[in-house]
Design a protein around this nucleic acid. Structure first.
Length: 999
DNA sequence: ACAGAAGCTTA
DNA sequence: GTAAGCTTCTGTT
């Protein structure tokens, strides 16, 4: 139905019973849309319009939806409410209110004005008032509407507004398509709307700087309000609270709670100028609205509005918009900051060139990558995902039809459903695929009846047999002309590889997101779906339950499994359409193509190979550790006088610093005594017997529980090797991480710990080869900061810490005292970590002033490093990210925080990220090139493990001598040809029967 | 049963 | 001072 069909009210008159007022929290929406939607959607002239696009889509959708909903949700009155300025009457109440709000992001600033213009283009009133927040105006209009007998719906999900919810006032969250009434408020916060004020007064709000009562969160607050009725009752009878800390905190902070209550209470008697009769809804002026939308280049919304209003879009001219530009000429624009030396050839993988028809109808000649990216996003965020529309594939004929269609389009998203999150143990239960947005299917393969007896229930009927299914899938999954889209493809590659299927070529939505947005959150399917599609995926536990009562996916009802699994393929497909063009738009294609995608099969092979671990060695060590720990336990009990739980820092602290009265006890942030190793070591150095024994006990029990006892449990029943799992997208800097088990933190520093490494062994007739980069991060620093002395020292193969000490303290390297070198070494590490006087002082156990003096001295001798640090901070602050020398971006969205410690932390992290991230890129490149180099050299060596700057191989004994030079060459030349470093890289390599001796 | 804190392992 | 993951204890769900 066309919009113009909306019944008009002839005469504007206030409001009457049955009327319905819609109030949009415009300011809240802007910020939410900005953060939820693409960071950098831009119009073709560079104007950032992501939030405006979201706002217009929302407004339009809201009106369409509202018209289709039951009676009572059709608006008769409509207004959009904005904040006027940051200073309000609350600042007089409490000067710190919202004081830690940082300035809006640069690319959001021009959008404030545009959103007001959008509101006017929709023919809607745009309401704001100096000295009051939008929330106060909303409260006031709610009250006016209620008094007039009308209903109100507030378009927002802000908890600050929930206090207004009542019989005639509801809320609606347009992003999650969720109505919020009294039951929803109670469900979310545990209190009815009228108690929200008291709840917020207790919990406070760190974003707005509302203090609240420290230590009281929403759960505790709700429980207290339940018990005491309201805040006043609680404050009066606070003495009755049983928990010591809670009682004390509430008594001590009663004033804060009272001021917080004033701050969060919305004012509902603002002297507003516009009355409700000004809000009577009028039909939009088609040409006026379309003119605006055209100007903003929101093509698909323009088309939809034109259809609905019966306007011919082609007849409408774009209009002028006024923009408060922060700096559109130099903003973080697409294509800027491309890697200086990374080549950007298409590569040999057909996956790089998806068929134009699939990549999008909009990709016509003349369109820029960023325009395509913007169009994709607009379409995706407006689309609805219907889980009821998916198909269940139950026979080979249907499967063949889907496979034929996938081959035709050349692109297919798929996902596997299995029995385990460990791909080496996972059994295939089902397979889902999507060939276009909304066109997805699930093929159950091994679902069982839920009514399982001890034998686990029988296999259900009407499922394609796994062998047949795999035989049909294999040609498609291996077809070089069909691109497979998968979220976290390494998992599926390992699973399919165990069934003899070699998945290629592929795109991985998780990795694309990681390249685009490292540092801005997680890259799981659910997070990406929320962020880009505005679609909440169903948690697995909704289907399979959790904990004790959970069942395997094979027990999940097939209809529900279809909605879930096909939904994943559908979402992956849509995400790919949105995210892939953004790589080109932001100049990040080569990072994805060179550092991410090719590493996936390399890591999949490493994980599948695993490494041999000697059970007997671990078992013997475990016994020794148990004995040592038991002896220490008896000695500790003797000294303490009772059998405390040594593993409980709480009990330990109470005994050591409470009962025994040892000195120097400091506090953790929860107020407990600190019993850190550092502190116990200090006490031991003062001659106390007990702390030494505790430190020793901790070392033994740590080694036992984390390593000697846990590792045997990871030995695979079939391969009899240990298969770790590498995460490609878990760190912000580009490093890998390892888990299940983590083989990147196997002990090495102490003799006791190193024994664990002797259990990692080569097969019979084989050797382990360990090759590690020497000082790679300092070499990267010397290169990027262009420090002549350091570059020269590395070129000479000199002792870098000694050279640093010599420069700083004017002492010759010959005969240098080890203490002098140790301090220089600590400073060098400090630089890599984004040095602070506080941290260096801690590390060296010296006064902060002295540490500060060292740093000052260091910068005098190496002014280039100070310049590098300053330039990095400035760049990060301007752009919100830093880059490695290969163009990898690492984002620091909080770097402009007004909180000095948050800001300083982000500055240090960004300084470190360029160095750590570049080193991570270098070893990634080495790993990508390694297998081919070994094969070319006719060597059978296989890469098994990566530990950040070290690679561990297994090779037949006879080839050890030939392997080491190849490995060194590949690692040392890894930056080439993309980057030619001014500092040589150096790799040490050794071979031995176990990891301890090889390292 | 789960979440957070504390502590410890690595580069 | 950077970047991770795992275990134990503790308090809450």
């Amino acid at each position: 139905m066309a919009w113009t069909a909306q019944p008009r009210r002839a005469i504007p008159a206030g409001m009457k019973k049955g009327d319905h007022l819609f109030l949009i929290d415009g300011s809240g929406y802007i910020f939410r849309a900005y953060h939820a939607l693409p960071p950098l959607t831009r119009k073709s002239d560079g104007l950032p319009v992501g939030a405006v696009s979201g706002f217009c889509n929302m407004l339009w959708k809201l009106m369409q939806d509202a018209r289709n909903t039951d009676v009572g949700l059709v608006p008769t009155h409509f207004a959009v409410i904005f904040d006027y300025s940051s200073k309000t009457f609350r600042n007089e109440l409490y000067p710190e209110y919202k004081a830690n709000r940082s300035a809006p992001p640069e690319d959001l600033i021009p959008q404030f004005g545009l959103i007001r213009q959008a509101t006017k283009a929709f023919n809607l009133p745009c309401i704001e008032m100096e000295g009051f927040e939008a929330d106060d105006l909303i409260a006031t209009y709610c009250k006016l509407a209620c008094e007039a007998g009308g209903d109100t719906t507030i378009i927002s999900s802000d908890k600050d507004l929930m206090q207004l919810v009542g019989d005639t006032v509801g809320m609606y969250d347009p992003m999650k398509d969720r109505q919020i009434g009294i039951p929803e408020v109670i469900e979310k916060w545990g209190v009815p709307p009228e108690k929200m004020i008291d709840l917020q007064a207790l919990t406070g709000d760190s974003v707005d700087n509302v203090p609240g009562v420290p230590g009281i969160g929403p759960k505790t607050a709700a429980q207290l309000l339940e018990q005491f009725g309201d805040l006043d009752g609680l404050l009066e009878r606070a003495g009755e609270i049983k928990q010591d800390k809670r009682r004390e905190s509430i008594i001590a902070n009663a004033d804060k709670a009272r001021i917080s209550r004033q701050l969060v209470t919305l004012m509902n008697d603002v002297p507003v100028v516009d009355g409700l009769d000004d809000f009577v809804l009028h039909a939009p002026d088609g040409p006026k609205l379309i003119g605006f939308l055209k100007t903003m280049e929101f093509t698909s919304l323009t088309r939809r509005v034109a259809e609905a209003t019966g306007t011919e879009a082609g007849d409408v001219q774009a209009v002028a918009v006024t923009v408060e530009r922060a700096d559109t000429a130099h903003g973080p624009d697409v294509g800027a900051g491309a890697p200086t030396a990374a080549p950007s050839t298409a590569g040999t993988n057909e996956a790089g060139a998806a068929p134009a028809a699939v990549m999008g109808e909009a990709a016509k000649a003349g369109d820029t990558p960023s325009l395509l990216a913007a169009l994709r996003l607009e379409a995706a965020s407006a689309a609805r995902i219907d889980a009821g529309a998916y198909v269940t594939i139950r026979d080979t004929a249907t499967l063949k039809a889907w496979l034929a269609e996938a081959r035709e389009t050349g692109v297919v998203a798929f996902d596997t459903e299995t029995t385990s999150s460990d791909p080496m143990l996972a059994d295939l239960i089902g397979f889902s695929m999507a060939i276009a947005p909304g066109r997805a299917a699930y093929m159950p393969l091994a679902h069982k009846s839920g009514a399982g007896d001890l034998l686990g229930g029988g296999m259900l009927e009407n499922q394609v047999p796994i062998r047949e299914a795999l035989a049909l899938l294999k040609p498609l999954l291996e077809d070089r002309s069909v691109l497979k889209i998968v979220q976290d493809v390494k998992y599926d590659i390992v699973v399919m590889s165990r069934h003899g299927v070699d998945v290629a070529p592929f795109d991985d939505t998780m990795l694309i997101s990681y390249v685009l947005d490292a540092g801005t959150g997680h890259h799981t399917l659910s997070a990406l779906s929320d962020k880009w599609l505005g679609h909440a995926t169903t948690p697995l536990k909704d289907l399979a339950g959790s904990g004790r009562s959970s069942v395997g996916f094979e027990q999940v009802d097939i209809d529900r499994a279809t909605a879930y699994a096909a939904g994943h393929a559908d979402v992956a497909f849509r995400l790919w359409q949105v995210l892939k063009p953004r790589l080109a738009a932001k100049g990040l294609v080569s990072v994805y193509e060179r550092l991410e995608r090719p590493l996936v099969p390399v890591l999949a092979r490493m994980e599948q190979r695993g490494i041999s671990v000697d059970r007997q060695i671990l078992s013997r060590l475990s016994g020794e550790l148990a004995q040592g720990a038991a002896r220490l336990e008896e000695e500790i009990y003797g000294l303490v006088g009772e059998r405390i739980n040594i593993g409980s820092p709480k009990q330990l602290g109470d005994i050591l610093f409470g009962r025994m009265g040892l000195p120097g006890g400091s506090k953790t942030k929860t107020g407990q005594w600190s019993t850190s190793a550092q502190l116990l070591e200090d006490l031991a150095a003062e001659g106390h017997e007990l702390p030494r024994k505790i430190v020793d006990w901790r070392q033994l029990t740590k080694l036992k529980s984390t390593y000697t006892d846990a590792l045997p449990g990871f030995i695979h029943p079939d391969t009899r090797r240990v298969h770790t799992s590498y995460a490609l997208a878990a760190t912000t800097t580009g490093r890998l991480s390892s888990s299940d088990p983590n083989l990147q933190n196997i002990p090495v520093r102490t003799a006791e710990g190193r024994k664990i490494r002797t259990a990692f062994i080569a097969d019979k007739g084989h050797k382990l080869v360990s090759a590690d980069y020497s000082q790679i991060e300092l070499r990267v620093l010397a290169h990027v900061a262009e420090i002549p002395q350091l570059t020269q020292a590395f070129a000479d193969g000199a002792d870098i810490h000694a050279i640093t000490a010599s420069e700083m303290f004017n002492v010759p390297v010959e005969g240098m005292p080890s203490e002098v070198r140790r301090r220089a070494k600590a400073i060098n590490f400090g630089i890599i970590y984004g040095i602070s006087a506080f941290g260096l002082a801690n590390q060296l156990s010296i006064p902060r002033e002295e540490a500060g003096a060292y740093i000052k001295k260091y910068f005098e001798r190496f002014p280039g490093i100070r310049d590098y640090i300053d330039a990095t901070k400035a760049y990060a602050r301007e752009h919100g990210f830093v880059e490695t020398i290969f163009g990898r971006r690492i984002h620091y969205p909080e770097i402009r925080s007004s909180n000095p410690s948050i800001r300083a932390f982000n500055e240090r992290a960004s300084i470190n990220a360029r160095l750590q991230g570049t080193a991570a890129d270098i070893i990634r490149r080495a790993m990508v090139h390694m297998d081919e180099a070994l094969e070319k050299a006719g060597l059978s060596a296989r890469m098994l493990l990566q530990v950040h700057d070290e690679l561990i191989f297994e090779t037949v004994e006879a080839e050890v001598e030939a392997t080491i030079p190849v490995v060194r060459r590949v690692m040392e030349n890894a930056p080439m040809p993309a980057v030619s470093m001014s500092v040589p890289l150096h790799v040490d390599a050794r071979a031995a029967n176990n990891w301890d001796e090889a390292h």
